[in-house]
Design a protein around this nucleic acid. Sequence first.
DNA 1: AGACGCCCTCGGACGC
DNA 2: TGCGTCCGAGGGCGTC
Length: 283
Amino acid sequence: MPELPEVENIKISLKPIIGQSIGKVLVLQPKTVSGKGNLRRASSRRVYEFVNELTGETIKEVGRRGKNLLIKMRSGKIILVHLKMTGQFLYDPTRKLQPGNHTRIFFGLSKGNLLFNDMRRFGYVLYFPNLTALKDTGHFEKLGAEPLDKEFSSKYLWGNLQKNKANLKSVLMGQKVVAGLGNIYTDEALFASGIYPLRKANSLSKEEAKNLHRAIKDILKKAVKLGGSSVRNYKRADGSVGNYASEHYVYGKAGQSCFRCGTVLKSFIVAGRTTVACGKCQK
DNA sequence: AGACGCCCTCGGACGC
DNA sequence: TGCGTCCGAGGGCGTC
C-alpha cells in the first residue's frame, strides 16, 4: 500500500533517528532480512550477519528511491527497506513502544526504540556492507525515473510508453518507466488525465502523455504534502496518519458517481489489481 | 514480451 | 446475536 507519497512521508518522519547509534537489534522474523530474487544473498547466516553488522553502527541518512527506503550508516553500511503492503516503521523516543504480534525487527537506538512491523510479511529489511554491494544486486537498475525529479519529463514518459505494448496501468505500476506509483496513484493519475487504464501504452498521443505526466506530478506532489493516503494501516514513524485519502476521485469509489460526469464508476481487474475508472470521461 | 499466479495474513462481509 | 467461513487487499518476482 505505501506508494511514493507514503514512503516519502515515512522517510521524513524518520528524521529523529539520524545521528543515533544502534545499541540493540532483534530479528523476530528471519524471513524479513533474507531477501528474494536478485536480492537473495549467499550467506545462510543472514540473521546473525544482520544483527552483528548493524549493532554499534550510527545512522547517517535516510533516503528513498521509488518505494524503497535506504538507511545509510556513517560507516557506509546500508539497509534497504521495502514496506510492500503492510510494512511500517514506528519510532518512540519514550521507549514505551515494545515489540508486538507483527513486529519483525526491533532496533534499540541511543535515544529511543525503532520497530519494523509488517503484518503480511511481504516487506523486507536487508543489510548490505556498502553501496557497491547493493548496486551489484541490480535492484535499482530496473527502476525508472523518479517522478518528482527533472529527469521525469513529458518527453521521457511519452518516449518510454511508445516502447510498450502492454496496457497503461500495468506499465505505470511496473516501476520500470516511472518508480513509485502503485494502485492508488495510478488510478488517480489516469482519471485526472482522462485516459482509460486498458489503453495500450504505445497508443498515447504526445498530448495525452503530456496530460498524464502533469497529472502524475501534481497528484504525487499534493499527496506528499498532505502526508499520503491512509487506507488500511499506513502510518508515519510517529504514528500519525495521512490526509490524501479524502482527495481520491476514483480509488475505492466503485459504484459511486464520477465527480466529473456523474456516470457510475466501474471496477475491474487489471494486472491483478482492482482498478476503478469512469467509462465515459476516461478514453 | 506480456499476462498471470503466487506469496502472506487478517478484517470484514456474509450465511446459518 | 454469535460463530464459522471465505474472500479481497496488492507489490513484485517467478513462471508460462
